[in-house]
């Protein structure tokens, strides 16, 4: 099976996030970067499918120079080769964020890079940890003209194609059979991730890493959605005194916990 995994590099969880001066994106200069977690699960699924059924895993990532470290990490974990869509417009250089490439633009880039590979399966994370749009995978499927499914926890190859397990709300799951080729947007937590190894990193150095740019792919930045402003969540603290007898207060408290705080 030939599998393409689209991964995104996002700010590291512990990185200090500050809003940039223009208020349109975060200050990217002092950030550390890491692989988007749902994408890490997509990669893991791809590697396990390859281990079971053979084939090839190709990682694909769009972004500036710095994305290289995440690509190497994916190669170190076991991907066979990589395509880096070098695109400074996605990074700090041109302001980053959504400015020049929105989800549609990124999906176009990815789709153009994927087409010549004609893979059996395209995997990507369900959403990114920074923007959280949940759209790229779905648009990508549309652009490639392939069937897709989202929120996937588990993939099984069958004679006819695939059997996938989707996560629904409230602990419900759905099992779907679908044909190949297909695009799947993976949910986190379906597998156990593997750790990076020294041997993996050393071997990764000898693996093919091809760089292409937007112009070579024939994709122009033409955003249809723009990001106007971002802001940190406002910290709010409010105290309410519940009067009445202990019983009344308790009843009111339970009510509030249920309806307002929604923790019950």
């Amino acid at each position: 099976m030939k599998i393409v995994v689209a991964i995104k590099q996002v700010p590291d969880r512990d990185a200090p996030v500050r809003i940039a001066a223009d208020g349109k994106w975060i200050e990217e200069r002092e950030l550390q970067w890491a692989m988007n977690e749902p994408d890490a699960y997509a990669l893991e699924e791809a590697l396990q499918l390859k281990e079971k059924h053979g084939g090839e895993v190709i990682v694909l990532s769009a972004g500036p120079e710095r994305v290289g470290s995440t690509i190497r990490e994916a190669l170190a974990k076991g991907a066979d080769r990589a395509i880096h869509i070098v695109c400074d417009d996605l990074g700090a250089g041109a302001g980053g964020g959504l400015r020049n490439f929105d989800a549609l633009g990124v999906a176009r880039l990815l789709a153009e890079a994927i087409k010549p590979e004609s893979p059996d399966l395209v995997l990507t994370g369900l959403q990114s940890e920074d923007l959280g749009l949940c759209q790229t995978g779905v648009i990508l499927a549309e652009l490639l003209g392939l069937p897709h499914a989202t929120l996937i926890l588990h993939v099984e190859k069958t004679d006819a194609g695939l059997k996938v397990k989707r996560e629904l709300e409230e602990g419900w799951f759905q099992s779907i059979e679908m044909p190949l080729p297909a695009v799947l947007a993976m949910q986190s937590g379906g597998n156990k991730l593997r750790y990076a190894t020294l041997m993996g990193i050393k071997r990764a150095k000898t693996k093919e890493l091809r760089a292409v740019n937007a112009a070579e792919l024939g994709v122009e930045a033409a955003p249809v959605a723009t990001l106007e402003q971002i802001s940190a969540p406002k910290k709010q603290k409010s105290t309410q005194m519940l009067g009445g007898s202990a019983k009344e207060a308790a009843t009111a408290l339970v009510e509030k916990l249920k309806t307002e705080a929604r923790v019950l």
Binding site: D12, R13, D14, A34, K192, L193, R194, Y195, A196
Partner: peptide, 11 residues
């Protein structure tokens, strides 16, 4: 072990 390694790879 994997959990520890992953915690330190990312955190």
């Amino acid at each position: 072990g994997s959990k520890l390694f992953l915690a330190l790879e990312r955190g």
